[in-house]
């Protein structure tokens, strides 16, 4: 079964042995975390936080508000750095990539559309692409939303369309309810940037098991994009 052996890219350079590579568990799963009943309370707090990030991005786009930028930096830069460290980047480069990501956020803030993405999702994508540019000497092929060849989605009914923030909140809830082994596979893929083969090696599992765990978790996450009907 050599199918996916070479599917993912070669290991990135700058691998750094990460002393703190404990898995990031969703809050509910951490020892001593608030019990489940606090869920709705916490989610409403999350939503306030999320809306606040959107508002900060709006201010940056409209008035080049440096105060808003500083607030956004305080929240995201240390987390981008943390993500980069977990992806095997050395501390100096992780710091640089966090700064570069935030600089990009400043420059692209007018392209942020809160109807299409949550702030954290949008910033994640920028950080991901900068990291690829830095380490792989590969391009990151991306579609162009204004491409005339793009086939648009069927026009959704206004009521059917979930706000991006709601989608992110649902994905968050769903991640917290995934069985532990599925969640770990998702984390290793996203947070540690491991290929499916690398995840299989790390967990000492057959490749097929890793794939089916990821498939299962994704099949639970996908419907989160749709309104319940």
């Amino acid at each position: 079964m050599a199918v996916a052996l070479t599917l993912n890219c070669a290991p990135m350079d700058g691998r750094y042995p990460n002393p703190a590579s404990g898995a990031i568990l969703p809050r509910a799963a951490r020892p001593g975390a608030a019990p489940e009943k606090a869920n709705s309370e916490r989610n409403s707090k999350d939503m306030t936080e999320v809306n606040q990030f959107n508002a900060l991005l709006g201010k940056i786009a409209e008035t080049q508000d440096k105060r808003a930028f500083a607030d956004l930096f305080e929240h995201f830069a240390p987390r981008i750095k943390s993500l980069m460290l977990r992806l095997g980047t050395d501390p100096h480069t992780a710091d640089e990539l966090a700064q570069e990501t935030m600089l990009s956020v400043w420059r692209k803030s007018h392209l942020f559309d809160p109807a299409k993405a949550a702030a954290s999702t949008w910033i994640f994508a920028i950080a991901r692409n900068l990291r690829i540019d830095r380490f792989r000497r590969e391009k990151r092929p991306e579609l162009d939303p204004n491409d005339p060849a793009l086939i648009p989605a069927a026009e959704p009914m206004a009521d059917d369309q979930l706000e991006a923030n709601d989608q992110a909140a649902r994905v968050r809830e769903c991640l917290e309810t995934l069985p532990k082994e599925q969640r770990i596979a998702v984390q290793l893929s996203f947070v540690e940037g491991l290929s499916h083969q690398e995840i299989a090696d790390r967990l000492d599992l057959p490749l097929g098991t890793v794939k089916s765990r990821l498939r299962l978790s994704f099949s639970k996450l996908r419907p989160m994009l749709r309104t319940e009907s």
């Binding site: 993405a117 949550a118 910033i123 579609l143 069927a154 994009l225």
Partner: peptide, 27 residues
């Protein structure tokens, strides 16, 4: 570019990245 269904799926998957970024302990 040619498939709105898979665009939605990738958007869902990117939300995973956003949520995990939010939950990463700050350095």
């Amino acid at each position: 570019a040619l498939c709105p269904v898979c665009r939605d799926a990738v958007a869902a998957a990117e939300h995973i990245g956003g949520v995990l970024l939010d939950e990463t302990p700050a350095e």
